[in-house]
């Protein structure tokens, strides 16, 4: 098993660290899956922990100037690592002005992802900072736990409103209630609702548009709402953690079962699943 990669371009580096920051906000620990062409950050929470799952996919070619990996075997040319994304975020935080960042899988005392940052200095040679991030190597028999989730058979799929607006609405609602009802129809309308003994609040979004999925239910009434009640903290976390301004954001609602969010930013896609509360 080998892995080494290098980022030289500052814009790529900043973009990469924004992605990592977003991941770090969403997951305490996650799985990093490396393939020849892609990196994946995967979280599959057990139902007991709220059952949230995340799938983030990036093309290595858009970030890295060098990227070499060698999986466990030629026919399984992949690497699965468990790590604390916050560590990676921290390592990249002070690398904003780096000349180069190298990431390498090492195994000195324990398996580590070594992030070596080359910084400009006043001296003749650059200053080198290394961060050894402990990782767990996930054996092949467990790989099946981290398969890409399939897009659920949703009732309604809808584009999300401006995330900043949605974020501030959800943040206020979080002060008032623990759960939120998210409902939408095929007429481009979405409502966020909370209701408690003290107050009921509904925010109405319209003209959002519905993505043209080929398999979507054609016979569904345009006005009829599909709804799910979810943990408001999970939704708030997703919205607050957004450091990458997605070019496309949408959500799929499976009535009373799950809400599936997809955020796309050119070469990065983030999927987030929040199960409905009973």
């Amino acid at each position: 098993m080998r892995f080494r990669a290098k980022i030289v371009d500052l814009a790529c580096l900043n973009h990469f660290s924004r992605v990592i920051n977003t991941i770090a906000k969403l997951a305490k620990t996650c799985t990093l899956r490396l393939t020849v062409s892609k990196l994946y950050f995967i979280l599959s929470d057990k139902v007991a922990n709220g059952g949230v799952s995340m799938w983030c996919e990036l093309c290595q070619g858009n970030f890295f100037d060098e990227f070499q990996m060698e999986g466990v075997a030629a026919e399984h040319n992949e690497i699965y690592l468990e790590l604390v994304p916050e560590n990676l975020a921290r390592a990249l935080k002070t690398a904003q002005s780096a000349k180069a960042v190298k990431i390498k899988l090492t195994n000195k005392h324990c398996p580590c992802l070594r992030v070596a940052v080359e910084l400009p200095s006043l001296s003749s040679s650059s200053r080198i900072v290394t961060h050894d991030i402990p990782v767990g190597v996930i054996p092949r028999r467990l790989w099946n736990d981290f398969r890409e989730p399939s897009v659920p058979d949703f009732d309604v799929s809808i584009y999300l409103p401006v995330l900043k607006t949605m974020k501030s609405v959800v943040e206020r609602m979080k002060n008032l209630s623990n759960s939120i009802v998210i409902e939408a129809n095929l007429n481009g309308e979405m409502n966020l609702k909370i209701e408690t003994d003290l107050v009921s609040v509904t925010t109405h979004f319209k003209d959002l548009g519905n993505p043209p999925w080929s398999n979507s239910a054609q016979d569904r009434d345009l006005e009829s709402m599909a709804e799910a009640r979810i943990d408001i903290k999970k939704l708030q976390q997703l919205l607050a953690g957004q450091q990458v301004n997605p070019t496309k954001a949408l959500c799929n609602i499976v009535s009373k079962r799950i809400v599936h969010f997809i955020l796309l930013h050119e070469d990065v896609s983030l999927q987030y699943f929040i199960p409905a509360l009973a």
Binding site: S121, S123, S124, R127, I128, T130, H131, D132, P134
Partner: peptide, 13 residues
């Protein structure tokens, strides 16, 4: 389980 950070400063700094 702790991340280890290390940096080197050249003598001429």
């Amino acid at each position: 389980k702790t991340m280890v950070t290390e940096l080197w400063l050249a003598k001429d700094e």
